[in-house]
Design a protein around this nucleic acid. Sequence first.
DNA 1: GCTCTTATATCAGTAGTCTGATATCATTGT
DNA 2: ACAATGATATCAGACTACTGATATAAGAGC
Lengths: 158, 158
Amino acid sequence: MTDDTDDAMAIPEIGEGKRGESGYLGYLLRQAVAANRQATERALEDLGITQPQFLVMTLINAYPGSSGADLARAAMLTPQTMSVIVANLEKARRLRRLTDPANARKQRLELTADGLALLQISRDRVREIDQVLAADLTPEQEQFLRRWLVQVARRSDR
Amino acid sequence: MTDDTDDAMAIPEIGEGKRGESGYLGYLLRQAVAANRQATERALEDLGITQPQFLVMTLINAYPGSSGADLARAAMLTPQTMSVIVANLEKARRLRRLTDPANARKQRLELTADGLALLQISRDRVREIDQVLAADLTPEQEQFLRRWLVQVARRSDR
DNA sequence: GCTCTTATATCAGTAGTCTGATATCATTGT
DNA sequence: ACAATGATATCAGACTACTGATATAAGAGC
């Protein structure tokens, strides 16, 4: 079917037209993140870990004893969203909740041995995907990129 | 509360530590996109339009008569996802489905007058947010960014 | 003491996003 | 003509992610 006799216009390919250098920067950002997320989840598929779960496990490992609210702030997510992610991780027995001795409302979170083991396996794979992102970049270019991304996140922060 | 007598470590601020120049590029990307999405949805809040809805309305306007499958390919989303977005847009009477005369399975999508009016109002606001992203960038830097984002999207495509 | 504010966690509802499974229509091959 | 293949749409289930509402605990001010 090479003839285009119907009147629905053709949509350009990824790198072309509005989907390339023209078009919204926000759209290109979203496209890139979606691709990166899919790559990550494909890499962690056999471990049953999603990208957000990996992020939260990483945070808990780095700052053990944090509360859900702490994690929500760190990940720039709402407490409700974090609550769901933590609940899913708990259901899979990858973390534990301990009641804070000083604050009965607060729950101190920490990884189980199982969670830590999975995190360690995941880390290498995620790092590898991350390095693909920076391939073909000079150190200066990567530095510029990182600074720009942080600035974008901070500017819309509130 | 300036003393940190409890043993839960403090989590750094956005630009600092692992949340700044170090840390995963993928994480920084996600943070930036989340911030951008929130800014966009805040700007379109009174119109009741989400960022994905804006994208789909823009696509339908540019390529009227496209099918859900066409749009899914263009937006790099699955047909199921597109189906949900289209259903929500139809529920809000911002688009119409016409059955394709040549293919009873296919549905040709087009904006209603209402949808088009909303799209036109939205456009300026979204463009403004997009320009904030590119503020402080030289044309060369912006060009480099766009190329990198397209490359990231294309590389993990499939 | 008691109230007001703040912080924490969670329930409910909506929207987006994926994978997997189905049903239906169109095209192609024989 | 008919079976196989492919394209389209959609249902179901799971995980994010948001807003809004609620309950409870801690701390501040009176």
